[in-house]
Design a protein around this nucleic acid. Sequence first.
DNA 1: GAGCTGATTGGCT
DNA 2: GCCAATCAGCTCC
Length: 205
Amino acid sequence: MEKTWQDWCQSLPTPSLAQALLGARIQVGNCSGLVVETEAYLGANDRAAHTYGLRHTPRNDALWQAPGTIYVYQMRQYYLLNFNVQPQGVPECLLIRALQPEKGLATMAQRRGQSGVALANGPGKLTQALNITRADDQTTLDTGRLQLTLSVRQPVQIACGPRIGVPNKGAATTAPLRFWVAHNPYVSQKGARHDAETSARQSWR
DNA sequence: GAGCTGATTGGCT
DNA sequence: GCCAATCAGCTCC
């Protein structure tokens, strides 16, 4: 019997959940991919979080809902996908930064206007590939059209580092709250350009 | 390959 | 008006 999302959320603190989410499958319609990169956002005390200082606005209301609530935020002309992980009233969440595409490659390529590694190697790209928009904000993993399957694969090695796009915010800028599957070519970092297929296989157990 | 920059939308002060 | 959890294309090594 699989653990429910709620049980899973209660089993670990948020940064550990960010690591544990690597290897999960996200599916929307007939498109799916494996989570290869995440970031943790730690609510009230995290200057990079939208809920820093317990800010509660119409935009971030989803973060104040029950665990499993989906928060979709618009950045420029892109959408960013987050999952709420802590009990209602504790606004901590996980940002999905990159996916390794599995199914529906042609559909995703059509939506993106790109193919291969560039399909979903960034937070704005994967939402475009999976057609996730503000319409999915405040839906949940139980009732929404987005399905999540935990622990489909196990990373050989998990790497961590500072989050991206969080400048001049002291501890929030440097805290190692970004986690990715080491050696996987579908992460959003530019540097690692390996043989995509070979490395993708070798990055999972 | 690495680093910089322009594009450009929406939410909040 | 200001700023932001981005992206892609362009330069210059």
